[in-house]
Amino acid sequence: MSLPEVPKHYVPRDVESLNIPPVKLQSLTTEYLFTYTMELPEDDPPCIIGSSKEMVNMIITERGTRVSGPRINGAFLRDGNDYVKLYPNGTSIHEVRCVILTHDGARIKFTYEGRGDFGPTGYNDVLEGKMPDKIRIRCGPHMYTDHPDYQWVNGLQCVEVGEVNVQQRYGSFDCYALK
């Protein structure tokens, strides 16, 4: 079966004919907001929702998450759930939604999607009931609140870097605002 022709208005223009001035590389700076550290409960192992040749879907529960830093301090309300799609090459997609209860009573919705690395044998290990020793995760969080003292979080795009240490049953993540 042959593919249909690409309509003329979708064909890329000759880039040499574009009238675009020289552009300068944009700078990137960050502001450290907080670190959150969580416990992986021993009595609640990862729950595999389903698996196929393409991916494993599972939920990893986070419990007792502490938030501390120069801009936000508090804890996560209730347990957090990390919805994970794990692929045969060991990469993963993580979707998390939780609420930070700050030390002064504000509630901040904290959501992110990110990418993880279970290692080259992670997919097969998980199917055999084993988790890797460590899972490296990088994400792009967003926050939202109506609380007047924390309205500044509503417009932020953040980046987060961290690692889950499965053997020691904790994870630690640093959250930065892009400036």
Rank of each mutant, 00 (worst) to 15 (best):
M1I: 07
S2I: 01
P7F: 00
P12Q: 07
P12H: 03
V23N: 10
L25K: 00
L28Y: 06
F34T: 06
T35M: 06
T37F: 08
L40Q: 07
L40W: 03
P41G: 08
D44W: 01
I48T: 11
G50C: 08
S51H: 11
S52E: 10
M55G: 00
N57M: 12
M58N: 06
I59F: 08
S68N: 11
S68V: 08
I72G: 09
I72S: 08
I72M: 03
N73D: 06
G74S: 04
G80I: 00
N81Q: 15
D82Q: 13
N89R: 00
T91D: 08
S92D: 10
H94Q: 11
H94E: 12
R97Q: 14
G105V: 01
K109S: 15
T111M: 12
G114E: 07
G119V: 05
G119N: 08
G122Q: 00
D125Q: 12
D133P: 02
R136I: 13
I137G: 02
R138E: 15
R138N: 15
H147W: 09
Q157Y: 10
C158L: 15
E160G: 05
V164G: 10
V166G: 08
Q168T: 13
Q168R: 11
F173G: 04
D174Y: 03
C175S: 11
C175M: 11
K179R: 15
